[in-house]
Design a binder for these strands. Structure first.
Length: 466
DNA sequence: ATGTCC
């Protein structure tokens, strides 16, 4: 740093030793060719306007340290920022205020860079469902969610509607015998997938402990809105899959990482909340710095849970197709509860949290389901950077689970299903189609984010009982 | 979402 003296730092208010060492390191790394005069004027500007630098790739470290020093906070305590972090909201009219407020709170974290709210958004714990958040070198366990790697898999099958109609009875039987939903019991046939041999299961005491549970639950589905269903998909002409724009039988599944991911999420949320202190209302958004051991452990564990969730879908699809003697033509899959290291529009690297959001980079295929009696859409991303390359993960809840239960009777649901030509095996009132927003309206709110490649209509749906 | 506090 040329001949800038420590005394000069003192004279401009950089007195704290931690602050000084960050400044010295930053200067040595990034401001080698600046004059002392320039450096001092930059430091004074950061000192007087720290909030405006919290998103700066280089100067944010100084700004954050300065803010924490100024407020006389310990190194692990943080204040919320007043600066407005960029946010784009899609389908704002249909999104409840509580979800927007949660997103605004998330954007006031000093680690937040950019955010987006998808048209199916509703309030969740910490980050709203349908929330996308870019942060700098930190991961928020509640920004990923409790079901790490909750995801979709669609297999387009080499069969037409005649097969679905002719083998209706067998399909129902297999959807009952070859899937497992809920917490008790498991599949009749022992499952294997190479993910079970993954060495990451030996990386931490927690993962070692969870390995047995992962073995038992491989190939099972969860509860709530999780499903496995057969239906028909009509592909668009000139779709990007390279398949003729015909109608095909298809298998669609929605589930996550079961007990493995839930335990990882619970454990590291606690670690984050113990080690990253925030104002009370923001505490669920506590993060793990990715340079710390806990941050790296979570990152490894989250990725393993994601791979495990994928393996569960792989087993489900392989089991059902094998029993029914069917052949896959094409497979589409995507996580919608996960975090990725990605580049932002300006080239800066960020951690992108998608909590109930579909990755939608240019050309990337994904699946956006409606409900048990409404279409799911096979989409290709448009790479819209305002949405952080994301789209909705479904139609989104219009009613709480309680409201949904209270507003629907068994006979009314039967009528809805019959009108849609859907057979439901298991399922609950909480998942009734009217508890969800209109999927067509949600799709209309994100035409700048994805293009529709195919429309899937469920025919035989398996969900958890109750 | 989750053997819903091993």
């Amino acid at each position: 740093m040329g001949n800038l003296k420590i005394k000069e730092l003192d004279s401009i208010g950089y007195v704290d030793n931690r602050l000084k060492s960050i400044v010295i390191n930053t200067i040595a790394k990034h401001f080698k060719h600046h004059t002392n005069e320039d450096i001092i004027s930059i430091l004074i500007h950061i000192r007087d306007n720290p909030d405006t630098y919290v998103n700066d790739a280089i100067k944010s470290k100084i700004a954050l340290a300065f803010i924490s020093e100024k407020h006389d906070l310990p190194a692990n305590e943080y204040q919320l920022m007043q600066t407005l972090t960029p946010i784009k909201i899609y389908g704002a009219d249909e999104i409840e205020d509580a979800a927007k407020q949660q997103m605004a709170l998330a954007l006031s974290l000093p680690i937040s860079i950019q955010g987006a709210l998808m048209p199916d958004a509703h309030s969740g714990y910490g980050l709203p469902i349908g929330g996308v958040l870019a942060t700098r070198n930190a991961v928020i366990p509640y920004g990923v969610g409790m079901d790490i790697g909750c995801r979709m898999t669609l297999t387009i099958i080499d069969a037409d509607e005649k097969f679905l109609n002719r083998y209706d009875h067998q399909i129902k039987k297999v959807l009952f015998s070859d899937t497992h939903f809920g917490m008790e019991g498991g599949l009749a046939v022992a499952q294997y997938h190479e993910v079970l041999d993954d060495s990451r299961f030996k990386a931490t005491p927690l993962l070692k402990k969870l390995h047995g549970k992962a073995i038992k639950q491989l190939g099972t589905s969860g509860s709530g809105n999780h499903f496995v269903e057969f239906g028909m998909i009509k592909l668009a002409d000139n779709n990007t899959l390279g398949l003729p724009g015909n109608s095909y039988m298809a298998l669609l599944s929605h589930s996550g990482s079961r007990g493995l991911g839930a335990n990882i999420a619970r454990h590291y949320t606690q670690v984050a909340m113990d080690t990253c202190k925030l104002p009370r209302q923001a505490q669920p958004l506590a993060w793990l710095n990715l340079d710390t051991e806990a941050g790296q452990e979570y990152w490894l564990s989250m990725n393993l849970a994601g791979d495990y969730a994928r393996a569960c879908h792989d087993r489900i699809h392989a089991n059902l197709l094998k029993t029914l003697g069917l052949k896959a033509l094409h497979k589409t899959e995507n996580h919608h509860n996960f975090a990725w290291r990605e580049k932002l529009a300006d080239g800066a690297e960020a951690i992108i949290h998608r909590k109930g959001a579909t990755p939608a980079h240019e050309g990337e295929l994904g699946i956006i389901p409606g409900s048990m009696a409404t279409p799911a859409y096979l989409v290709a991303g448009k790479g819209n950077t305002d949405s952080l390359n994301s789209a909705s993960h479904g139609a989104g809840r219009a009613m709480s689970r309680q409201e949904a239960k209270a507003s629907m009777t068994g006979s009314a649901l039967k009528k809805t299903l019959a009108a849609a030509g859907v057979t439901l095996i298991g399922g609950s009132m909480e998942e009734n189609p009217s508890a969800y927003k209109n999927i067509e309206a949600v799709m209309a709110a994100q035409t700048n984010l994805v293009s529709i490649q195919g429309k899937f209509m469920p025919r035989i749906v398996r969900m958890n009982n109750e």
